[in-house]
Each structure stands twice: as C-alpha cells, then as structure tokens.
Simulated scan of single mutants.
Amino acid sequence: MSTSADLRAALVDGLTGDDAITDPAWEQAARAVPRELFVGSYFEPVPGSGPTEYRAVSRDEPGWLEGVYENRTLITQLDGCISPEDVPGGTVTGMPSSSSTLPSLVLRMWHQLGVEPGHRILEIGTGTGYSTALGAHRLGDGNVTSIEYDPAVGAAAAAALKAAGYAPRLLVGDGLLGDSDGGWYDRLIATCAVRYVPYPWLHQVRPGGKILVTLSGWSHGYGLALLTVTAPGEAHGRFLPGGTSFMTARPHDRPSRQSITLLPGDERPTRIDPATLGTWTGSWVAQLAAPSAERMGAGEQQILIDTATGSQARTAPGPDGGWTVTQRGPLRLWDQVEDAIDTWRSAGAPHQQGFGLTVSATGQRVWIDTEDGPGWHLPI
C-alpha cells in the first residue's frame, strides 16, 4: 500500500511538460506538504447525471488517499454551505463553491508569480489551505498572509495548516478589500476569479510588485493575467497562455435570479457561428462585449440573458442552413458579440496571451496586441 510520501513523490514526478516543476524550492514544497490534511472528504460528480449530482468520498473509503493525490481539482463544498460530511452515502446537486485546486495549477501559478526569498505575499482565497501551505513552506510563515471569505472554510483551513506545522497569518473577510493592516506586499495571488481587479489590491502591492489574477464573468470566460503595479492604483500586464479557471469570488458572483422565460423578439441571420462562444477565447471575447450577460446553451443554441436589463439573445439553426438569432430588450447583446468577434478575428484571433490589461484610476481596459489596440472596458 502506498504511503502519503510515496504518493506525493509520484505526483511530483508525474508533472511534465508545461506542468513540470522547474524551481527546486517549489519541488521541495510539493514533496513536503501532505495534501490529505487539507482535503479530507470531497465530492465527485456522478457520471451521466444532469443536473450534475455529486457523491461524497470519505476518508474511510478504499482509494480515498490515492484520489487525493490525483492531479485534479477536488470539490469540498457546494452552494456555499454543503460539505461532504452532510451527505454520507448519498448524492446531492449543487454548485461548487470551494475546492482544492489541482496541484499542477497551484504550483504553476506560484511559478508564474515569480516569488523570491523575502517577498511578502498576499493570497486571496485560502480555500482548503493547501496552496497557502506551499507558500509558507517556500517563503516562511511570516511572509504569507491569506484571506478567506467563508468563515467555516477559513476555520477548516486554519486547523489543517496547524496540523501540517504551518502558521501563516490568516484572515477571514472580503479578500477583494485586501488587507488594510498588512502594509506593502511584494506579490498578490488570487485563487478565485474576479470581474475586474479590485482597486484596494493596487494600493497594497508596492510599485514594481506583481498581481496574478483570473478575470472572469457571468458568461464563464476566463483569462489569467500577470500585472505589474506601476503606481498606487495603477497596473499594466498581459494575459498568460493556457486555460485557467476558478470559482468567482462571491462578491463578484452573478445576482440570484428566478427561472428564465425566453420571450419573442426580433429575428435575423447571424454573422458568426454561435459555436464560437463555446471555444475558450471565443467565450472570453463574447464576455468582454456583453459583461453583464449570463451565457447558457451550447453549440448552435446559445442563450444570453442580461442581468441588468433583462435583454435576451438566443440562436438556433436556420431553416436553410446557417443560424438565426432572436434578440429582445434595450441591449442588442448578439450585435455586441458579433462586433467583438469580428474585431478579434481581424486581429488574427489570438489566444489570451495576445491580450493585455491596463488599470488606472479612470477604468480597466482589456486590449489586443498593444495598449492602443482594439479593446473593451471591464465593468467596475
């Protein structure tokens, strides 16, 4: 039977290619931090269920430890309140609200952040505490502060960190407000997604310091940005290659809504294939164009509902080939999306690494290629 140390070693040794650990200090941390102290029981999706059902995998289940050391995200909470211990032996539906992110992504982000010995780090989203432990092992307890929004999740992480022998500074509260008592930080890493970069962060990371954050929205487009703070309240940077997604920070999450009724509207042929919105960068561009819209549907049948105005757009296969779109409301959501997709394609349809972000006191603008290139403003 494999031990925890054996499984940690196998996990690290199995990280190759883009996931390979190139910094010996981070490799040492990955081999030292026992993930099982931070995960405990977790949820697994039930194959073929719709809406998705989850079953709890408990510590006493055969294969539990091996599951913990698979390079995958393990869901630890649903709907902001349901833990695996709440559904022993059964299944439950819900939306994931806390998790232990797959180790390869956690380690890759620590690499991308470019930390050095002596750096002070602010982590937004403690979660299970596993990422926090890696940072504390690499940099020392005194150089790591982590903020968790959910008090129950924060308490569990604190207990796990203590059990693992780490004692970073832990706070419970709205991480989007940062740490007003922490002074200057050299680096900030966010393990949640946000709709825009919170301005308090830009006043707590020193000029020249870096912020690594996933930008997202209610249409589930994602882009991981590495920013350099150029002055208090200002930053500039680019989006990174690959695909990184996180749960949205709860203060930035979509407002609650009732059931959706699709209503009649104006119908016309579309200029773009609706399935473009199902691609990684296509969904990102569409979200930039309609930032207050929620996207549903798949393939040829896309649905956009604007949370602010109730405007709607929905696509369908056309009777003679191609596709149609029906729009209703003060915002012509599909018009906005088509224009953005055309702009993106005219620029060569780059992946996110072709995009950048400039943050100033007057707004936050995502651009393509260069700062004066085509772009869109993030919702503030």
Rank of each mutant, 00 (worst) to 15 (best):
residue 1 M to Y: 07
residue 2 S to R: 14
residue 6 D to L: 06
residue 9 A to H: 10
residue 11 L to E: 10
residue 15 L to I: 09
residue 20 A to F: 01
residue 21 I to F: 00
residue 23 D to N: 14
residue 30 A to E: 00
residue 33 V to W: 00
residue 35 R to C: 02
residue 40 G to C: 06
residue 48 G to Q: 10
residue 53 E to N: 01
residue 55 R to A: 10
residue 58 S to C: 06
residue 60 D to I: 11
residue 60 D to W: 07
residue 63 G to H: 12
residue 68 V to L: 05
residue 72 R to Y: 03
residue 74 L to K: 15
residue 75 I to D: 02
residue 77 Q to E: 14
residue 79 D to S: 14
residue 85 E to H: 11
residue 86 D to H: 05
residue 87 V to P: 03
residue 91 T to V: 15
residue 94 G to W: 04
residue 97 S to Q: 08
residue 97 S to C: 13
residue 103 P to L: 09
residue 105 L to I: 15
residue 110 W to Y: 10
residue 111 H to I: 01
residue 117 P to G: 04
residue 129 G to L: 04
residue 129 G to A: 06
residue 130 Y to E: 05
residue 136 A to K: 12
residue 142 G to W: 09
residue 144 V to H: 00
residue 145 T to S: 09
residue 158 A to H: 09
residue 160 A to W: 03
residue 162 K to C: 06
residue 162 K to L: 11
residue 168 P to K: 07
residue 169 R to P: 00
residue 174 D to G: 13
residue 175 G to Y: 04
residue 183 G to N: 02
residue 186 D to T: 08
residue 204 Q to N: 03
residue 208 G to C: 08
residue 211 I to V: 15
residue 215 L to D: 03
residue 219 S to D: 07
residue 222 Y to L: 06
residue 223 G to W: 04
residue 226 L to S: 13
residue 227 L to T: 02
residue 231 A to K: 11
residue 231 A to P: 09
residue 232 P to V: 11
residue 232 P to S: 11
residue 239 F to Y: 13
residue 242 G to K: 01
residue 243 G to D: 12
residue 246 F to L: 13
residue 246 F to S: 03
residue 247 M to Y: 08
residue 248 T to A: 11
residue 252 H to L: 11
residue 254 R to Y: 05
residue 256 S to Q: 14
residue 257 R to P: 02
residue 258 Q to T: 15
residue 263 L to E: 14
residue 269 P to A: 14
residue 277 L to T: 11
residue 279 T to Q: 05
residue 280 W to L: 14
residue 293 A to W: 03
residue 296 M to F: 10
residue 300 E to Y: 12
residue 300 E to M: 05
residue 300 E to I: 06
residue 300 E to G: 04
residue 303 I to G: 05
residue 305 I to F: 14
residue 306 D to M: 12
residue 315 T to E: 01
residue 316 A to E: 15
residue 317 P to S: 10
residue 320 D to P: 03
residue 321 G to I: 08
residue 323 W to P: 10
residue 323 W to F: 15
residue 324 T to W: 04
residue 329 G to H: 12
residue 329 G to E: 10
residue 331 L to M: 05
residue 332 R to T: 08
residue 333 L to S: 04
residue 335 D to R: 14
residue 335 D to Y: 07
residue 336 Q to M: 14
residue 339 D to V: 13
residue 340 A to P: 11
residue 343 T to M: 08
residue 348 G to Q: 12
residue 349 A to H: 09
residue 350 P to C: 04
residue 351 H to C: 09
residue 359 V to E: 00
residue 362 T to S: 15
residue 376 W to I: 06
